[in-house]
Design a protein around this nucleic acid. Structure first.
Length: 479
RNA sequence: CGGGGUGUAGCGCAGUUGGCAGCGCACCGCGUUUGGGACGCGGGGGCCGGCGGUUCAAGUCCGCCCACCCCGACCA
């Protein structure tokens, strides 16, 4: 049961987040360092994310499968950049069944290697391509500093792995899945994201090109919320994924991989949450409408409950995720705060006055106080609620977009760049050299987030060194 | 691994010159309450992070160790 007030975002955004995750019962700390327990309420959010993504994966021709958790250590070593990137954060199993293993097994940090190995077995002919497989699972990366949902030692995600006959096809796939992620983020999570390409230093270990959707959190820090990689032939060569083309010539395949994790839950919390707690987008909320019946005594209860039950049944029959909070040991006021903390988009209050007037009170989570509370007739409650949920979903996206756009700046020089990065992102010309990127990081702790894909053609001078630049990049502090 | 901090009930904390281990919230029971975080009465719950030392006596003093948190280096 919730206690009193949350730390406010202004007081300490990080404390606000940590307290909220615990008190809203999304997740809890586990006895194992850096690992988290996803509690039922948090997991239902993840399940809704999974459903929305999985539907999109299927629509774009992908199928699900499952690959092993344990991978021979030698597999990781077959791709040079991949092993360099991941070896510091591997968990390694050396004993099984009481015996020292002949070859140590790594707990997968990602599955390019073992899937690459399997693809080499499955691919013989151009007719075997493309292979479009996704897997839902978890991976382990031995992180130094962890934070619930954002960075934990084990995290849950999906990883898609595809193999194609041509470079062009593989590049198309990379961007197709980036579009899927962006569509999901915007239309399901109500998080405006910027699609872009990662710099050389920020890209995935082993990729030729990494793309990302970047979101701005409520403290203006950036969160990479999903990534899609064009792997070129790097893994195909390391694992000998080869096929005979139509001319019977042996070719290496071209592969991609793309992932989105439970980090998305953290993104939702930090994009929409406020000082009263969580604010969940209706499309992903485990509970879309919570009903709070109000009565003082048995006689009022006998009047109120049958009507409340009927409304509940009508909403549920219409597919609305509705919950009746019929606890009698806590007051309605307590319930209001409790469900606001948990981010339920819409609250319905129904008491004796409503029975008299054939009305109910509806309170929007995204509009605080009296302004968000309206009285509507019980008649037609289903469309009323459905329309409001759609409205709330749109309002969340609009609000988050306005917030983000008001915190993206266009500094004119390096000095201004360091200034604006204290309170947002910078969109600037950049020569794409690692040296200039490092200088910005040195001065501000901010890195390049991505080169936005959708940007008007322009030429300019690198904000750091003044060399000519053809594209703008986003700089920002990141999680 | 560097810098800083904290370990006392589930959570947040107090504990004076060393002298019966406490408070608030949460939890359990009973009753009254219930349209924005109700109240009364009665209860349960402790290896005071660990080990060692000083002392008649240690949550308190001394030493060592451990864990966790925050800030950096690394990261979806």
């Amino acid at each position: 049961m919730a206690e009193e007030k949350l730390t406010t975002q202004a007081e300490n955004f990080s404390d606000w987040y940590n307290e909220l995750v615990i008190r809203a019962e999304l997740a809890d700390y586990s006895p194992v360092r850096g690992c988290m327990v996803v509690r039922p309420y948090g997991w239902r959010v993840w399940e809704n994310i999974q459903a929305a993504l999985d539907k999109r994966f299927k629509e774009t021709g992908h199928v699900n499968a499952a690959f092993p958790l344990l991978i021979p250590k030698s597999f990781l070593e077959k791709e040079k950049e991949h092993v360099e990137g991941f070896s510091p954060e591997l968990a390694i199993v050396t004993v099984g069944g009481g015996e020292e293993l002949e070859e140590p097994l790594v707990v997968r940090p990602t599955s390019e290697t073992i899937i690459g190995y399997m693809y080499s077995k499955w691919v013989k002919s151009w007719r075997d391509l493309p292979i479009l497989i996704n897997q839902w699972g978890s991976v382990v990366r031995w992180e130094m500093r962890t934070k619930l949902f954002l960075r934990t030692t084990e995290f849950y995600w999906q990883e898609g792995h595809t193999a194609h006959a041509t470079e062009e096809e593989a590049r198309e796939e990379t961007f197709r899945m980036l579009d899927v992620y962006a569509d999901f983020a915007i239309n399901e999570a109500a998080i405006p994201v910027i699609k872009g390409i990662k710099s050389e230093t920020e890209k995935f270990a082993g990729a030729v090109m990494s793309t990302t959707i970047e979101a701005m959190m409520g403290d203006t820090k950036a969160l990479q919320s999903g990534t899609s990689h064009f792997l070129g032939q790097n893994f195909a060569k390391a694992f000998e994924i080869q096929y005979s083309d139509k001319n019977n010539e042996l070719q290496f395949a071209w592969t991609t991989s793309w992932g989105l994790s439970t980090r998305m839950v953290g993104a939702i919390i930090m994009t929409h949450g406020d000082d009263k707690g969580l604010v969940l987008p209706p499309r992903l909320a485990p509970i879309q409408v919570v009903m709070v019946p109000i009565f003082k005594n048995e006689s009022e209860k006998r009047q109120v409950m049958p009507v409340a039950d009927d409304l509940f049944a009508a909403l549920r029959a219409a597919g609305v995720r509705v919950k009746m909070d019929d606890r009698e040991e806590v007051t309605p006021g307590f319930k209001y705060n409790d469900w606001e903390l948990r981010g339920v988009p819409l609250r319905m209050e129904i008491g004796p006055k409503d029975i008299e007037k054939n009305s109910v009170a509806l309170a929007r989570r995204d509009v605080p106080g009296r302004e968000g509370k309206i009285f509507v007739p019980q008649t037609g409650i289903v469309p009323t609620v459905q329309n409001l949920l759609v409205e709330i979903q749109a309002a969340l996206l609009a609000k988050a977009t306005a917030f983000r756009d008001s915190h993206i700046f266009s500094p004119n020089n390096f000095e201004e760049l360091t200034q604006v990065l204290q309170n947002g992102w910078a969109l600037s010309h950049w020569c794409e050299s690692s040296a200039c990127e490092a200088k910005v990081k040195e001065a501000t702790k901010a890195a390049t987030r991505c080169i936005p894909i959708d940007q008007p053609a322009s030429t300019g001078a690198c904000i750091v060194c003044g060399q000519p630049s053809k594209r703008k990049v986003i700089f920002g502090k990141a999680y």
